[in-house]
Structures are given as C-alpha cells and as structure tokens.
C-alpha cells in the first residue's frame, strides 16, 4: 500500500497547486462573466518570467513573486485592452470564448520564439525529504502546500470579511444592481483581474516548480486541470473550486500510481465528463452550467 500512501502525498501537493489555479479561474468567470481560455497561457508565461529570474541566480521564491506580479499586470491589461472592449461592444458569450482562445493561441506563439522549444526547469534544490510514515514529501512541496492553504484562507477572508470582497460578491450576483447601490463595479472588476491574475501567475510558478520540467505546451494541461476542478465545483464558485481541486488532485495522483502518469489529464477529463453528464451545474452551484448564457 505504500505506493498509494506516497501517491496521497503527491495528491496533497497536486491539489494545492490546482486549488490556486482553479480558484483564480473560477473567480474570473464568476465575477467578470468571462471564460478566459488564455488562463493556461498566462500561467505558463508567468512560469517563464520566474524561470528567467531564477536563471539569473535569484531564488525561485523571489521568482514566484515576480511571476505573481506579472500574472496580475498581464491579466489586468488583457482585460482592459482586449476583453473589456469586446464585451462593451456587445460580443456574445460564445464570441468572447473565441476571442480568449485566439488570445491564447497568439500568446503561446509569441512566446515560442522567445523561450524556445526545449523543456526547462528551475534551478532550485528541492529541499530535504520529510517523512510522515509512507508519505514522503520535500521541503519545497511542504512550502507549496502551506502557501496554498494560506492563499485559500486569504481568499476566504477577502470574500467574507472585507468591503472589497462583499463588493465582488455583489458584482457577481448582479452587476447592474450592484452599480445602482453605489458599488464602483468597474474598479471592483479591475481588482478582480489583478487578484485572479496574481493567483494565476503564482499557480503557474508552483505548477512548474512541482513538475520536473515544463514547455510552452504545458499551458494546455494546466488549463485542463484548472477547468476540471472549477467545473466540478460549480463554475464561478471559489469554494466549489477548492473542493474540486481536492478531488481532482487526489484522483489524478492515485490513478497515476495505480495506472500510468501519462493519463493524469485523461483521468481529470473523465471526472469532468462524469460531472457534465450527472451534475452539469457542479457540486455547489445552484444554476451554473444549466442556466441560459447571459
């Protein structure tokens, strides 16, 4: 059974990584009504920003902050310069999905000539091994888990106890009503893109740190796991995304131990299909995928 205990340890790390990515993705969707298919590409771009800083001899933990800042600024600009104008123009939901897919494609191919085709990895010592029974994790992985838990608590506190968080929830529930109540929805949405962008950037760096090596194409895999967790939990629901991340993280790692690591994303996809057939609205959402677009 020790292989499954080890897989459980990896599962803990995996779910931590997925949670950060999925919460960012689902908040973007829930509050700004934008399915941002370029999310995976912004993640991998941030991972590369951290890579170049790390290669200059700086520790990856500083690179991680740089990745988060890059993710925040980039996502903010992406919304201001591309998504928001299209939305203002009255582009439909589906049109916006196509726009974000086009952005994703452009981003990947703008990066390709810059970062090259070869896979890279961070130069960071993984830290000492920590054993808890059969579970073996590195110090770095423990740091990732703690970071993720802290971020989740932070998001919870933000949404529950701050004025900004309440304004975000109000904007998500009904933007017009929120604006009529005096909430500056435009500024709230800007803040959402900055915060979720930072989560996206962080998620990219820790996902890259947690995998042996990464290439531009890893972005699609990042997007799929984040999507699976977000949809599983009920799109637009941050707490749902956290639960989704726990489930997807555990299932993918356990299946990798029992079967083959090449099929991790396939298993995540299998979970996604099951959810879409059995409970399309996700675990937590009341309407979610079932409601009419718009």
């Amino acid at each position: 059974m020790s292989i499954f205990a080890a897989a459980f340890g990896f599962g803990l790390v995996s779910m931590s990584v997925i949670a950060v990515a999925a919460v960012g993705f689902t908040m973007q969707f829930g509050i700004t009504n934008m399915i941002n298919l370029a999310y995976g590409q912004v993640m991998i771009s941030s991972a590369y920003v951290a890579y170049y800083i790390n290669r200059a001899g700086v520790t990856i933990w500083v690179g991680m902050i740089a990745g988060a800042v890059f993710g925040a600024v980039f996502s903010f600009l992406l919304n201001r310069l591309v998504y928001a104008p299209f939305q203002r123009k009255g582009t439909s939901h589906i049109g916006m999905v196509i726009v974000s897919l086009a952005v994703s494609l452009m981003l990947a191919n703008l990066l390709l000539p810059i970062v090259g085709y070869f896979s890279v990895s961070y130069q960071e010592h993984a830290g000492n091994l920590v054993r808890l029974g059969d579970i073996v994790v590195t110090n770095n992985q423990i740091a990732i888990i703690l970071l993720s838990v802290a971020l989740m608590l932070g998001i919870h506190a933000l949404l529950r106890y701050t004025r900004l968080g309440k304004a975000m929830r109000a904007t998500a529930a009904n933007p017009t009503l929120a604006r009529n109540c005096g909430i500056p929805t435009q500024r709230v949405i800007d803040m959402v893109w900055l915060i979720t962008g930072a989560l996206c950037g962080l998620a990219g760096v820790i996902a890259a740190l947690n995998s042996d090596s990464f290439v531009i194409a890893s972005g699609a895999g990042f997007l799929i796991t984040a999507l699976a967790a977000a949809v599983l939990g009920g799109a637009g629901q941050p707490y749902g995304a956290m639960i989704g991340a726990v489930i997807i993280g555990l299932i993918t790692e356990l299946s990798a131990a029992a079967w083959s690591p090449e099929y991790k994303e396939v298993v995540a996809f299998g979970v996604l299909v099951l959810v879409m057939v059995l409970r399309p609205q996700g675990l937590l959402a009341k309407r979610g995928a079932l409601a009419a677009a718009g």
Binding site: Y263, V266, L272, M276, P280, A289, L290, A292
Partner: peptide, 22 residues
C-alpha cells in the same frame, strides 16, 4: 444535451486536447 452553449465550447475544446493525448 444539457450544457449551456459556452460550456459546450469548453467541453469540446478539452475533448479535442484529451483525444490527442490519448
């Protein structure tokens, strides 16, 4: 059958990536 149109688009995109992986 059941999904909202934007979810359909995402589901089909993911299907395409996964089919290729498999």
């Amino acid at each position: 059958r059941k999904l909202r149109s934007d979810y359909q688009a995402i589901a089909l995109l993911v299907t395409s990536i996964i089919a290729n992986t498999v």
